[in-house]
Design a protein around this nucleic acid. Sequence first.
DNA 1: CGATATTAGTTGTTATCGCAACTAGATGCG
DNA 2: CGCATCTAGTTGCGATAACAACTAATATCG
Lengths: 155, 155
Amino acid sequence: MAVNPKDDILRLDSNVPYQISVLSHRIARETAAITERHGGLNISQWRVMAAVAERPGRTANEVVAITPMDKGIVSRAVKALLDKGMLARKASNEDGRLGHLFLTARGEKKYAALAADIRGIEAELLGGLSAEDAARLRRLIGALCRSFQGGPQEA
Amino acid sequence: MAVNPKDDILRLDSNVPYQISVLSHRIARETAAITERHGGLNISQWRVMAAVAERPGRTANEVVAITPMDKGIVSRAVKALLDKGMLARKASNEDGRLGHLFLTARGEKKYAALAADIRGIEAELLGGLSAEDAARLRRLIGALCRSFQGGPQEA
DNA sequence: CGATATTAGTTGTTATCGCAACTAGATGCG
DNA sequence: CGCATCTAGTTGCGATAACAACTAATATCG
């Protein structure tokens, strides 16, 4: 009773969640191609770099909190980035469990190059829209991100 | 130079492709929970059922063409659905390679139940928007799906 | 007709994801 | 202190994904 009131067949191509999945899939493929090209990184690794660049000193757990990634995935991505010399970890003085993450000089450079290309995806994605529509989309997508946390409203 | 003209740090939380990935991830988790609850289906299997329900007689290859799924994934999903008795396959008379897919009675029933819950996700997703905004979003997402095919404009 | 190229679909391999078990440091409290 | 609890992060495992190699049926063209 939401979309096709009188039709019991769900049209995939006009179902918004499905359309978002399709877009996300295409975006992920393109993102993966870019990060792969830049030194064999994968998307998880790129996200960790981006999260750390945004706020240096973030811990793995903070990265988990702000991205759609699991603890395990972040842990492995951090390890790979340490190995590649993109990231450095500094144990907290107050709490030995926390590892604050920072981009190395090498990581900074890689990040800058990567970020430019990643921005290109957004430009490409929104390229077909008018400036007004792009602004509208930004507003609406932002609203969805804030309101929809998944999980059937529990409680 | 697209989003933060004077800032070389990319803000993940205002990057539209990233936001779409985040939403997609949440949607996928909720979809998976629903399909899992309905007889242990996974998302691929649900998508195949939906594609077949939409147009009975579709071949595996047609399903591949309209969904973000690989040949291999569709092949395995079809096999699982045949095993579960949700789907029937009828070889084409004209072309022995083609297998036309149909929902069985059991599949139809499962599909109807599933489709209702899946629609619920869209309702939940758009629930926080005004009717006007929901309509705008539909239009804009539809436009993106049509215009953005991923892959750096080749040719 | 017969060789070659295409296409539909299957299967195998490898990488990634999601989850849960686990380790280790920190905290709370008798 | 001593014990239970909590939290950060790691690791192992089963499911899923992407991609490539393969099979089988068809189409093309000499």
